[in-house]
């Protein structure tokens, strides 16, 4: 797929819109999520898309089971979560690893860039390492324009090579949370 170039009026890249388009073209239908401020626009876009189903979770590891089950039934999904949710997923990732389910997550980061809340720091700082330990391949897009192309590469990699992938979206790209 062509590199999405969707721009905002201020000239910045509208990454949620571009990511939504990537998900739609990839026929990713199950949007399992625990909300995060950085994901709110993407969640809204997916919720407004009749080809997609929003699946709100009470805790992130539920999304691992939901997406594995959807794949058993022949459909694809994505797990949207904040970095603090990575820790909740650890044992459930054994399902993905043991059965080699294709898996895609988009993780918005906390606790690493001008963070105002010290309680976010321990998991935010360890989220990427925890994903690696659990066998999930992390991607770190370097600027806003590369978020959607990175999600596209990650979803292809997951689907075609039966691997678990996660795109980590830094606070440096989406902005510090204002208090």
């Amino acid at each position: 797929m062509a590199r999405p170039r969707q721009t905002r009026k201020d000239g910045g890249v509208d990454w949620p819109k571009a990511v939504h388009r990537v998900l739609r073209v990839a026929d990713i239908r199950h949007i399992a999520f625990v909300p995060d401020a950085g994901l709110s626009r993407l969640i809204d876009l997916c919720g407004a898309d009749p080809a997609m189903r929003l699946i709100p979770l009470t805790t992130e590891e539920e999304g691992i089971g939901v997406l594995a089950g959807a794949w058993l039934g022949g459909e694809r999904g994505v797990l949207l979560m904040q970095s603090s949710g990575v820790g909740n997923c650890i044992n459930a990732f054994s399902l993905i690893a043991t059965c080699r389910f294709p898996f895609l997550a988009i993780v918005t980061m906390r606790g690493e860039w001008g963070e105002f809340n010290p309680w976010q720091v321990p998991m935010g700082q360890k989220a990427e390492a925890a994903l690696k330990l659990a066998g999930v391949v992390p991607y770190r897009p370097e600027d806003e324009a590369s978020i959607a192309p990175t999600v596209d590469a990650a979803q292809k990699f997951a689907r075609d090579s039966d691997v678990a992938t996660a795109v980590l979206v830094s606070q440096a790209l989406i902005g510090m949370k204002r208090w």
């Binding site: 199950h30 189903r53 699946i55 590891e61 539920e62 999304g63 691992i64 089971g65 939901v66 997406l67 594995a68 089950g69 959807a70 794949w71 058993l72 039934g73 022949g74 459909e75 999904g77 044992n91 459930a92 054994s94 399902l95 043991t98």
Partner: peptide
């Protein structure tokens, strides 16, 4: 049959994802 041997706590959500992807079954 999809048998689980681990990932305790995931059986219900696997069934949910499967039911949503296969609404006729």
């Amino acid at each position: 049959n999809f048998y689980m041997w681990g990932a305790m706590g995931s059986a219900a959500t696997i069934g949910l994802g499967l039911a949503l992807a296969q609404p006729r079954r």
